[in-house]
Simulated assay, not measured.
Amino acid sequence: MTAMETESSETVVTKALSSTGPDIDEVVIHPLVLLSVADHYHRVARGTRKRVVGVLLGQSHRGKIDVLNSFALPFEEDIRNPSVFYFDHNFLEEMIRLFRKVNTKETIVGFYSTGPSIRPNDLRIHDICKRYVRIPIFCIIDIRPDRQELPVKAYKVVEQVHHAGQAVTRQFDHVSTQMGAMEAEEIGVAHLLRDINDPTVSTVMSLIQGKLNGLQSLTEKLLTAKKYLQACAEGKCKVNTEIVDHLQTIVSLLPNLNTPDLVHAMIVKTNDMHMAVYLASLIRSVIALHDLVNNKIRYGEDGMQDNDEALAQEEEKKEEEKLKDTGNKKDGGK
């Protein structure tokens, strides 16, 4: 059985495996999960082409799954033969027993992998997780540092029948994913970022870098939408009305920048911002020059103290040494 992602919408009869219970509409990943997965990868598979696999713990409520915690699993697979892999069931059972003693509210909600893509063994791992949870989710957590978009993708398994009389195939279907955190987690992440912050990088530079990363991610999304629309126009894939409606909504929300009033307002706003930056630069330069003049006055041209003061201090030291020497001679003569 091969696991694949559905890129184009086809006329299929789809039935989610979660039909026996509430369907999964949204997955929320908490920061502790990302930290645990990154630590797991760097301990086990750093510098290799291997991936790591683990179990996700959390809570489920009305189709929304909060992934709060995770733990690693001993996992090995043969790259040449995808059907061969090792999954430690005894370790999984023992970890489940220990976690129930610590926190009974957190239950198994699925499993994770560092991917970065879906592999054939993922459906078999999904079947193993179904022994512990009715509707397991599958999360691919991309730990590569050069990724600018959200590093998490969530999937659920669906059954698809393309034509009547054909066999049912199982595939992974995307689930809406977002990052979330409770107040205590937000405070912990803020302290962690404060500890790893680079003091050589100013706050302005970090803000600009964040804006650039956001624009790069937006560019990737727009290119994906462009490729999809071109494929639809060329007849390579069928049009999905839901996707087209979303794209039309995005286009409708864009402001009309060709109106004279808006152009004038943008120019005025830009000039005001540049004026504030210019004044701040002037004030900073004047303060720096003022400090430089004060230093010259205090320490002299060569960076030392005034010559007169230095000579006076040296003469005072010599006189004190002479007095001490004369006092010592008198004491010795007595």
Rank of each mutant, 00 (worst) to 15 (best):
M275L: 11
D195N: 03
A167H: 09
V152F: 11
H174A: 13
L32F: 01
S281P: 00
T107F: 00
S202D: 12
L289S: 07
T20F: 05
R131D: 03
P74A: 06
S9I: 09
H162I: 06
K153C: 04
V109S: 01
Y228A: 07
T114D: 02
A265T: 01
N256T: 06
S9K: 04
T203A: 09
R80A: 13
L32W: 00
L32I: 01
F87Y: 06
V189T: 03
C139D: 03
T104C: 02
S252E: 14
S206T: 13
I283P: 00
T249W: 05
D291N: 11
D261R: 15
N258R: 12
E316Q: 02
F172P: 09
V189M: 07
Q171E: 10
T326L: 14
P136M: 07
T219R: 08
F91L: 00
L98V: 06
R147G: 04
V263L: 14
G47R: 12
I250L: 14
D195R: 07
D195S: 10
E186P: 01
N295A: 12
I297P: 00
E93T: 02
Y41V: 07
E77D: 09
L323E: 11
P145T: 14
H264R: 09
G63T: 04
L192G: 05
A167L: 10
R298S: 07
V168K: 15
S19P: 02
A225K: 04
R147K: 15
I243T: 11
D198K: 04
V12E: 13
V44G: 03
L123H: 05
T326F: 15
I196L: 13
C139Y: 03
S83Q: 10
P74K: 07
K334N: 05
Y278N: 09
E149L: 10
T241P: 01
D127P: 00
Q178E: 10
V201S: 05
A154Q: 01
L253I: 06
R144I: 08
H191T: 09
G333N: 11
A280S: 14
D325A: 15
R46G: 00
I108F: 02
V133L: 01
M4I: 09
K238Y: 01
L193W: 08
F138Y: 15
K269L: 03
E93F: 00
R43Q: 11
N103H: 01
I137L: 05
R43W: 08
Q178I: 09
G110S: 04
S70I: 03
S70Q: 09
V277M: 14
K211N: 10
R298Q: 10
H264E: 05
P74Y: 06
N90M: 06
V293L: 14
R46M: 03
L73Y: 02
Q248L: 15
A72R: 07
A312G: 01
K130V: 00
L311M: 14
M1K: 10
T203H: 13
A184N: 09
F85Y: 14
Y228R: 15
T20Y: 04
P199A: 12
S36Q: 05
A312D: 05
Q216W: 10
D195P: 00
A167G: 09
C232E: 15
G303H: 11
R43C: 05
M4L: 13
D23E: 11
L56C: 06
E77A: 13
M205I: 08
S19D: 08
P199L: 05
E220A: 08
V175E: 02
T200K: 12
A16S: 15
G165L: 15
S217T: 12
T241R: 12
A72I: 00
E76Y: 14
